[in-house]
């Protein structure tokens, strides 16, 4: 019993090593609900299989594979990166922040230098990138500064700016989002972005979250996780890429699927209040782990089964597994 999509899906499958997975469930909890699960960043957390969370942007073992796929997507669809004109200073601040964050993680591959002449020089020997630019240049190596950063890091990047006490998406550089369109989100308000999510829109949670984000101090770094279930290890699950997939695939695979090849898709999200521009940098690192691998960690297997069994129907639908929940729970019990 294997899935056989009608059109070949050439996107490579990606697997995050379990030792690096940002396990999204609270220790000991056997249920899950939406809440404002934010905590300060840059603190490692131990899990049943390893640990995560040391860095804000992190170059992990998947870097070469992830960057190869990102480069292919950006070459094909440059509109995955877009920015409003006034976001240039924030994009520059994000670029300098991001490169400074990853440079020390792989001194063998990366080199970041600020010359006495004020010129910033970047070199990435793995990707063969080499450029120099001055803070404020409209283009860095031919790309918008946020796109230039996206070309060097695994995370999806969003810049939000406050306008009359609300947050709006001012710039986007993203290739691996879940089933939504990041390019469509440019210019949208924080509230509108969250309007499709069941439960949270009317609970006051969106408003509270927005007030929290607006009140962050310069330089603050917070993080949270989000999760859902997908039927493939494809990093790019975005609406932009949906035309490349067989439209019946998701539904059919729901019934035919070998449950072990379902993927837990974890988004490790960081929120950084950039100090010089006041903009909010929102980072999403997408991680994927097959159920068959997750259940090799007994604590995870038990917890995931309980959470999935208990989750209310509307959330299960939003998380992508309501249709085949009974079969999936049986599979856990095998």
């Amino acid at each position: 019993m294997t899935t056989a999509p009608r059109t070949p899906d050439t996107a490579p499958s990606y697997a995050t090593p379990l030792a690096e997975l940002a396990w999204p469930f609270e220790p000991g909890a056997d249920t899950y609900r939406y809440w404002i699960n934010v905590e300060r960043g840059r603190r490692p957390v131990a899990t049943a299989a390893g640990s995560w969370g040391r860095h804000v942007l992190e170059v992990d073992g998947g870097y070469p594979a992830v960057m190869a796929e990102r480069t292919a997507i950006l070459d094909r669809e440059p509109r995955r990166c877009s920015a409003l004109p006034h976001a240039l200073p924030a994009a520059w601040e994000a670029l300098e922040f991001g490169l400074a964050e990853i440079a020390p993680q792989r001194p063998d591959l990366f080199r970041l230098q600020r010359g006495d002449d004020g010129v910033l020089r970047w070199r990435n020997d793995l990707l063969g990138t080499r450029w120099s630019a001055r803070t404020g240049d409209p283009l860095v190596d031919g790309a918008h500064p946020l796109a230039a950063l996206a070309g060097q890091v695994q995370e999806d990047l969003f810049l939000l700016g406050p306008r009359e006490d609300r947050l709006y998406v001012d710039a986007v550089a993203a290739t691996f989002t879940g089933s939504w369109s990041s390019s469509f989100s440019l210019g949208m308000s924080f509230a509108d972005l969250h309007s499709p999510v069941p439960r949270i829109r009317d609970s006051g949670m969106v408003d509270r979250t927005e007030r929290f984000l607006l009140s962050l101090d310069p330089g603050d770094v917070y993080r949270r996780t989000n999760w859902s279930i997908y039927d493939s290890g494809r990093l790019d699950a975005s609406l932009e890429a949906s035309h490349r997939r067989d439209p019946g695939h998701a539904v059919r695979s729901a019934t035919e699927h070998r449950y072990g090849s379902l993927r837990l898709r974890v988004e490790l999200q960081h929120l950084v209040r950039l100090p010089a521009t006041g903009a909010l940098l929102f980072l999403i690192k997408t991680q994927l782990a097959a159920f068959a691998d997750i259940v090799t960690v007994p604590q995870w297997a038990g917890q995931l089964r309980s959470v999935l069994a208990e989750l209310p129907e509307d959330m299960a639908a939003y998380k992508g597994f309501a249709r085949y929940r009974p079969g999936l729970l049986d599979w856990f019990d095998l």
Binding site: W35, N37, E39, R208, F212, Y222
Partner: peptide, 9 residues
């Protein structure tokens, strides 16, 4: 505790 800023509850 988590957030220390009065939002997470």
């Amino acid at each position: 505790h988590l957030c220390r800023t009065g939002v997470c509850g």
